[in-house]
């Protein structure tokens, strides 16, 4: 997979590049600020961009703003935003649009899941940090009808996992996962959809609404 990294901390940028290359990906461009990120993407036409939210010049949400611009110019480009801290509103909104990921930086250390998330986003799927999902599920009123197991499955669905992925994480077979998913969708009144990422969108839209 051809990947561009936008990250101002050289230490982290090089470490991440090394990790990705070690996993067999190709890091085709590196940028230290939002401006040069746009140029690098235009030059290299990658499949995926991994972007730090806080970057020069403003050190606020320059990365997120650059991501929106990239999404407008390259609709098929997968984008994963990395953040130092959890921020619910914007992240859910971005991820709901598909082909988007929002992860805390520390997730890099769960190398396999991190790489899995990158692949999923590059393929048009989603990845939402478990911390964010946890907060979304933290509102008990709407999910009172779900069993603990169903809540676990719902959380993984929100993170962007496929049925196979969910089964692997929870040590369940695919058929059982499908049953749980059907039950959850029925209880929440959502239309069950075969396509994974649309399902994620439906779940996020449901969890994200007030």
């Amino acid at each position: 997979m051809r990947i561009v990294i936008g990250e101002d901390s050289a230490l982290f940028r090089e470490g991440l590049a090394r990790l990705l290359e070690d996993a067999g990906h190709q890091v085709v461009g590196r940028a230290g600020d939002a401006e040069s990120l746009l140029t690098v993407v235009a030059e290299t036409e990658p499949e995926l961009a991994v972007i730090d939210i806080r970057m020069p010049p403003d050190h606020t949400d320059d990365g997120a703003r650059a991501a929106r611009k990239l999404r407008a110019s390259y609709p098929r480009l997968g984008i994963v935003l990395l953040s130092q801290h959890v921020e619910t509103r914007h992240s859910v909104e971005l991820v709901s649009s598909g082909g988007f990921g929002y992860l805390l930086k520390d997730r890099v250390l769960d190398v396999d899941q991190f790489l899995d998330a990158l692949t999923r986003v590059a393929a048009g799927g989603s990845a939402l940090d478990p911390e964010v999902v946890g907060r979304l599920l933290g509102r008990p009123d709407r999910l009172a009808a779900l069993t603990p197991r169903e809540k676990e499955v719902l959380g993984l669905m929100a993170e962007g996992c496929t049925n196979v992925g969910i089964g692997r994480r929870l040590w369940l077979n695919e058929r059982t996962v499908e049953t749980h998913v059907g039950s959850i969708m029925a209880k929440l009144g959502l239309i069950s959809n075969a396509e994974d990422h649309r399902r994620v969108l439906a779940v996020l839209a449901y969890l994200g609404q007030n």
């Binding site: 901390s9 982290f12 470490g15």
Partner: peptide, 16 residues
């Protein structure tokens, strides 16, 4: 924090 995360990545790399 950056330093610790980088350190973590280096450890993962070593582990692999």
């Amino acid at each position: 924090q950056q330093r610790l995360v980088s350190l973590g990545m280096a450890m993962r790399l070593a582990q692999r």
